[in-house]
């Protein structure tokens, strides 16, 4: 599989991702935010495909768009309150937060501008098609311990979520 690495698709997908991100933090209604977040996630999955990382793109679609976002929508429906939509949406500290975030962006940009020369213009040729197999071998080889810890983390998360959300255990 050879993803089409054209600038057009890059700008389209990153535009979608950033527009979705903007909508996430500006919508009053949490469901609309969730929809915008889904757009962002799918656009980022497209960017992964352009970076020759099909397995990560597939995981992104299954876990994020199909799993986590459904969980979010489920919870939004459970805790939906009519009045939260009419209330103030931003907390009292929002100018400070916005300023801090903009400072962070400025920092990033200055680092990128200064370190521009450090990034190679030529990227290595696309890897072989067996991306999934190589990731599998790495996960069960070099990163075996981290993989097991991740499964333990998931177990703890399941237990924690059940204990938190269940009325009577």
């Amino acid at each position: 599989m050879t993803p089409v690495a054209t600038p057009f698709f890059f700008y389209l997908l990153s535009g979608l991702a950033i527009a979705g991100g903007l909508l996430v933090i500006t919508r009053r209604n949490a469901v609309h935010s969730a929809l915008a977040l889904i757009v962002t996630l799918l656009a980022v999955a497209g960017l992964y495909l352009m970076l020759y990382a099909p397995f990560v793109a597939g995981v992104q679609i299954i876990v994020y768009a199909g799993g986590i976002m459904v969980l979010f929508l489920f919870v939004i429906m459970l805790v939906s309150l009519e009045r939260t939509i009419k209330e103030r949406q931003f907390n009292r500290m929002w100018p400070v937060g916005l300023f801090a975030a903009c400072a962070l962006l400025a920092l990033f940009m200055s680092v990128f501008a200064k370190g521009r020369a450090l990034f190679p213009d030529r990227v290595p040729p696309p890897p072989e098609a067996s991306n999934t197999q190589q990731i599998g071998v790495m996960l069960y080889g070099n990163y075996m311990f981290a993989f097991e810890i991740a499964s333990l983390l998931l177990l703890v998360a399941i237990l924690g979520a059940v204990i938190m959300a269940k009325k009577r255990i």
Binding site: M1, V31, L35, I38, P54, F55, A57, G58, V59, I61, I62, A65, G66, G67, M69, V70, L73, F74, I76, M77, A129, S130, N131, T132
Partner: peptide
């Protein structure tokens, strides 16, 4: 149409998006 090397993953992922349509319809 095409043979992806993540074919089955793609199929499961995209068909799991169908639930979003159902959830949104119910909520809206």
């Amino acid at each position: 149409v095409s043979d992806m090397n993540i074919g089955i993953l793609f199929m499961l992922g995209v068909s799991s998006l169908a639930v979003l349509g159902v959830v949104m319809a119910g909520w809206a």
